[in-house]
Design a protein around this nucleic acid. Sequence first.
DNA 1: TATGAATGAGTCTTCATTCAT
DNA 2: AATGAATGAAGACTCATTCAT
Lengths: 183, 183, 183, 183
Amino acid sequence: MSFDRDHVLRAAADLLTRKATATTEEVARAAGTSRATLNRYFPGRDALVRALEEFGLAECEAALDEARLDEGAADQAVHRLVRAMEPCAGLVSFLYSENQLFEGEGQHAGWSRIDERLNALFRRGQESGAFRLDLSAVWLTEALYGLLTAGSWAVTEGRVARNDITHMIVELLLGGATRRDAT
Amino acid sequence: MSFDRDHVLRAAADLLTRKATATTEEVARAAGTSRATLNRYFPGRDALVRALEEFGLAECEAALDEARLDEGAADQAVHRLVRAMEPCAGLVSFLYSENQLFEGEGQHAGWSRIDERLNALFRRGQESGAFRLDLSAVWLTEALYGLLTAGSWAVTEGRVARNDITHMIVELLLGGATRRDAT
Amino acid sequence: MSFDRDHVLRAAADLLTRKATATTEEVARAAGTSRATLNRYFPGRDALVRALEEFGLAECEAALDEARLDEGAADQAVHRLVRAMEPCAGLVSFLYSENQLFEGEGQHAGWSRIDERLNALFRRGQESGAFRLDLSAVWLTEALYGLLTAGSWAVTEGRVARNDITHMIVELLLGGATRRDAT
Amino acid sequence: MSFDRDHVLRAAADLLTRKATATTEEVARAAGTSRATLNRYFPGRDALVRALEEFGLAECEAALDEARLDEGAADQAVHRLVRAMEPCAGLVSFLYSENQLFEGEGQHAGWSRIDERLNALFRRGQESGAFRLDLSAVWLTEALYGLLTAGSWAVTEGRVARNDITHMIVELLLGGATRRDAT
DNA sequence: TATGAATGAGTCTTCATTCAT
DNA sequence: AATGAATGAAGACTCATTCAT
């Protein structure tokens, strides 16, 4: 059977998300192939990380497309967004921590595009009067990443049910912890 | 001059927070000492991480003490908590990611104690009617960690002003992004 | 199209003469075929070297035959010898260096046969009074190899014209650098 | 005891002269040290070869200095030259074959300097009427290298006595194989 | 039969660690 | 006590080889 690049990338993402320092051998084994073959397609660990970055970017872009950020009320769009991005959370978290290493080189332009799309959504919410103005769109974007990561971990560690996590993130992000009806 | 254990730990925390894969040599250099001396006091990388864990735990406990979580309204306590914990965010984030590696070994009991104190705060808020019941105290604790980490990065990357970050985190955690006065 | 064993051997000899550490892939490419096919006919790098050895031996034997070492004056025979062997020089040089690796394994008997034929020529010259007795026939044989190799390199590097090299080698080997008519 | 760079270089030269494809481990063992330490001082195999090149160059230059090429009759100078260079022959031969690999990069300028000094000697002999004019100085230089290499091998393989080799090379280079008194 | 693809083996390199000063 | 130097261990990479088409 032929080498399934996508399958390998998914397996690598799964493993590295859980154990960021996993060996090339472990990655290869997890992908059901050998070190040498892995190296044929991704020459060097960097190449693998770069490929994962492209992969993660594509997944995120697809998630954003699927969420139709421009349509309907901003809070509903956020809801769709979180639901769509949740599967990417682990990989994105891994890539974030890896990117810290490449400080000098400047990060991949694709992430700026993603950031900008998220920023645009939050700005739209602010302009429509739905979202607060004292919390900047940039911060809301960063906070979304943070909550996605936290949610991913919380599920992995068994502290929150997988089926609940989208609700947890969306409600916290949009409504906060304080009771509204208590007013 | 005598070996300043605390100074070394702070330097190591600063560096590893930014670059989790930093070499022993880099850590030693950042601490102003040599590999060999570093190894004399922390025999093995694990020992250093464990020491950092103790260090981070102590800082966190101190922050929790300083925030007087049991006193006054829960939301005010959360405010004090975030302000007090913010300096620990980077180190806590690093230790979290390191702990992923030691899945097998149960994690340090100290973190459970911290978790429990935070959980207790959020439960108190829920029992007092101040906080929502559909967002579990456990999740709020995890979310707090996530927001602290996101805030730390956002400041490091220059996206949010250092003086604003406590406000950003507290307001989002308690009030969410949606405008309340718009009702 | 059928596999042209001789063509492959010549291409391999040409390449390995210039770059002794050439990869199997490079050899195959130079021969206009693929690694796998090369391996089908020469299973293992050793097999290729052995085949090259047989090839080189055959070429040398043919050169010696062509030079008719037993006929005429010894110095004339040396002249014919150098002219005939010059095309083999590069390959012989390569095989010499390869043989160093197989110290343990006795070298191919064919080389002894060649050596013996050359020795015989120089001994014949000594016995006929044409060649000096204080330079052993064995040494003259080795020196011939050395001069052939040096000549091959000198031509490759463009330091001596291809048409001159036989003259240069023969004259040096037979007459040395010192002027005779100066006496 | 401290790391003896010169000792390591000599050991490496001795081994690589005999077995050009020797492993880093074998080189280290032959030098009485470990791979890791070898790598500390010569990071990468290339670095070792470059260092050997510098080492060989220095030895050659020293040999040329010792031979006082400018003094006395040219043939006497050649005699001194061969005697002085003989110990370098193996290493020079190795470096020659290695240099073939770096075709693109152009060879170390030092060798040109050596070549030029040798060329000058042979030109001086030609101008003084001692050496033939139909064998170019450049060729005599190349031939000298070839004879040194052949002599080194002949001694290693036990075909010529070590004490005889200088005589063998000098006499062949200067006087050739043909009897002079036969005239 | 010839070849692209997969892999086992072995080398190079680097890191964490230990030792002698 | 502190450090430069040496090393064992382990990961990454490349090559020669084999397999399936």
